[in-house]
Amino acid sequence: MTADATDLPQGTRPSLLMRLPGRDFPWISVTILVGVLLLAFIGPWVSPWQPQALDLRSAFNPPVWVEGGSWAHPLGTDNLGRDILSRIIAGTRISVIVAFWAIVLSGALGTLIGMIAGYFGGWADIVIMRLVDIQLSIPPLALALILAAVLDPGLQTVVIVIVVTYWSWYARIVRGEILSLREREYVALARIAGCGPVTIFTRHLAPNIVNTLLVLATLQVGQVIIFEASLSFLGLGIQTPQISWGVMLADARGYITNAWWAITMPGIAIMLTCLASNLFGDWLRDVLDPRRKQL
């Protein structure tokens, strides 16, 4: 682990959790992230309206602070009189589900591949790194578009597309880390002591890249959310009866001249979530590994 030259005596180093708050802890970002996470779980119980409830008489109600708005629909309504606040709350669920699965799966796949390339080297490394090169030569959104068009659009497709796009990200960075770790004495000693690759991966290598993975995953959250929104906006992601922020933007584009708030509000939800996760990720990177500012 990072052996900082702290003047703490051996064995009294505070645990990671204890060290986290303190130094410029990004309270606002964490509050936003926890809020989004919470709304994804308890959304249906706190949402003021049914997100799908139509009410054509109150279509195009503006937000409360605009003339003609009311507290009944604080963020206004869309073309079918559906409450925008309730729909944004419902959309958090999709965002959290997509972000969770996309990050876990692309992180796991990329880490495994990166470990294999970095540890075994030789042909495995050459083949894998050429694959990464190929992957990186196709613009991410272009690859996503053709994949999304092949598979049936929907939640699963969005996750698959993101995993296919991002695994190389993890693979490349993990490979680099493993390349330097591999040469450490304790790894060599473990090998001499007869540990198999699986043991060396899980016991000796994985713990040393956890911090890197954590930072990568946090910084990926914002990108994943924007990715989902872009795909859904083009009609290749989440489909209409389901609610996501990208779907709301796609719908609202049709009546952009009538209701600016229907475009603005879901976008603000995206922006705040991305901003929060990027700031949190930056902070995490500085705290966990001050030596590497350019991840």
Binding site: G222, L249, R253, I270, C274
Partner: peptide, 12 residues
């Protein structure tokens, strides 16, 4: 700029 989808910036 990094927190906003480019198409949303466009719509705004």
């Amino acid at each position: 700029g990094q927190a906003m989808p480019n198409f949303w910036v466009g719509l705004l």
